[in-house]
């Protein structure tokens, strides 16, 4: 059967858009959607997913363009403020499946509104975004709390983390401002990259293939001579502040979920 004229028109408008997985890539994609009046049926992160094809839709690859992305960012800032733009960025860092589509829809909603749509706490997409942002935020907060530096013999303070979401970009500022006079590295072993501060600036670091297998065991071999002692003191402190008459394991585990224990030396 020949497709009718109607389906052909539909097929021309519906797109599966692919982008490079970066935040600027996603903003560029938004720009293109407005420019070409695309109807988007799916967004594909080239870094992660196999390219899908949809019988009724055409695929298009978005080329990341810094200027286009900036224009979208600027427009959003003017419409809903820097805070809401930051929210979308945090939602993006969640890496939750389908989050790109959600971000696109939220942006379309914001631009369609006369008033500040980001305050509409009853709108379905906004609720969804806020929910994701809340979990990302919680994870960021946990990383600020649960990073445990170990002092190495070359005076670098080293920490391993395994966050649920990609939150390292969100904690750079906090650690840089706080630990301005010590060199440190926070390494995400799940995503295999880290952030490293050299007393001047923070850079991303990736330990190449020859260094794979960063784990607690090979860090211990590089410890500063005092590290074991302070680790022991901290462990002892943790045990000494407990009031056994008030024991409440359920509450404890709720605050410090078990999946974080492996990097908390007071829990060893």
């Amino acid at each position: 059967m020949q497709p009718s004229a109607n389906t052909i028109v539909l097929a021309m408008q519906h797109r599966v858009l692919e982008y490079d997985g970066s935040w600027y890539g996603l903003l560029t994609l938004v720009f293109e959607v407005y420019e070409h009046k695309y109807q988007v049926s799916a967004i594909v992160n080239r870094l992660k997913e196999e390219i899908q094809s949809d019988f009724f839709a055409q695929n298009a690859m978005v080329t990341t363009n810094w200027q286009k992305a900036e224009r979208v960012a600027k427009g959003l800032k003017a419409k809903v403020g820097a805070g809401s733009l930051e929210e979308l960025y945090e939602a993006y860092l969640s890496e939750v499946k389908g989050v790109e589509m959600l971000i696109l829809k939220a942006i379309q909603y914001y631009f369609s509104m006369q008033v500040a749509g980001n305050k509409n706490y009853a709108h379905p997409q906004i609720i969804e975004i806020k929910k994701i942002v809340k979990s990302v935020s919680r994870e960021r907060h946990r990383m600020k709390a649960f990073v445990r530096f170990q002092r190495l013999s070359d005076d670098i303070y080293f920490a391993i983390v395994e966050p649920d979401f990609n939150v390292l970009p969100l904690i750079v500022k906090h650690f840089k401002e706080r630990y301005a006079d010590q060199r440190w590295i926070i390494y995400d072993v799940k995503r295999d990259y880290g952030i490293s501060y050299d007393l001047c600036e923070v850079n991303e670091v990736v330990f190449g293939a020859e260094n794979t297998g960063i784990d607690q065991k090979n860090i211990v071999t590089g410890w500063h001579e005092e590290e074991a002692f302070y680790g022991k003191l901290w462990n002892l402190y943790f045990k000494s502040v407990n009031i056994k008459e008030r024991k409440n394991t359920k509450l404890h585990v709720q605050h410090v979920p078990k999946r974080y224990w492996k990097y908390l030396n007071e829990k060893l």
């Binding site: 907060h141 600020k144 709390a145 649960f146 906090h174 401002e177 706080r178 630990y179 301005a180 006079d181 010590q182 943790f238 502040v241 407990n242 009031i243 056994k244 008030r246 024991k247 409440n248 394991t249 359920k250 509450l251 404890h252 709720q254 605050h255 410090v256 908390l264 007071e266």
Partner: peptide, 17 residues
């Protein structure tokens, strides 16, 4: 220097929560 305040972070919780 070292440190700042304002974040009010709980770095861990005792076994009584």
């Amino acid at each position: 220097g070292l440190g700042n305040t304002g974040a009010g972070i709980c770095h861990t919780y005792t076994e009584d929560g």
